[in-house]
Amino acid sequence: MDRKIWLMSPAVFLLLCFCVVPLFIMVYYSFLSDGTGGHWTVQNYMDFFQKDIYLKLTWKTVKMSFYVTVISLLISYPMAYVMVSIIQGGKNMLLMAIIIPFWTSQLVRAYSWQNLLRDGGLLEIGLRKLHLIGSGPLGLMFTSTAVIIAMVHIFFPYMVITIYMSLEKVDGALVEASKSLKAGPLTTFRRIVLPLSKPGIISGCILVFVPSLGVFVEPRILGGTQGTVIGTVIEDQFFEIYGWNFGAAVSFILLAIILLSMAVLSRFAKEEA
């Protein structure tokens, strides 16, 4: 065997110690009846599927992630398109502007949104100054809408960057070739640019949808009573209720949903490649 393979050993060691082993410990917990003891059982999983509330929360989480993904896509595609095709200089500055918020804690960003969205907050003041709303409170805080707004803000940069990269790879000569073959700008976009940027759209969707499924900070801070999602259920089980066994079971159900959605999206990408 090639001796170079040993170069991988530090990474493999890290992965084994801090990812695979803990994962198996969690699997082990999820089949125990009580804490680190008790007997073997599948009751934790049964609980999840037998209680209506968890299925509803799952559906709600999936729906919310779906909205976040679609809104991110609608914002990101035009932005990436403009960055690639129109703006000559300053592309790097724009990319930096998109990336810089990454370096801010998710928690800080969630609290910033709270200041913007709350009744009497900046958004309300601004809208009132523009006479776009009446004198009543904004009523945006502690709703699913507030959660979705903040999540879009946090996740859409992944989408911009992946779409930007795939659009940048589209050869300008292909666009010109399409036009020389009598296709107008719209047809050229629909039949050449869009299909060729599909890999970027798919990976962008995966990068937004998957973390959205497990999110718990934003729902907690901005969602109020509306903010219960699978992510917060898991967090509660581990940190509030100390129901590690049930929490672990829910985690693996979430993991299954994530793997399933990735499989579906990847199949989408392969279809025409």
Binding site: D171, A173, L174, E176, A177, S178, K179, S180, L181, K182, A183, G184, I192, P195, L196, E272, A273
Partner: peptide, 20 residues
Amino acid sequence: LPPYKRNIGMVFQSYALFPH
């Protein structure tokens, strides 16, 4: 006239065939 209304055929240096 824009390119798509000029009725001109073109063979590009890189051929620019649509890869998909």
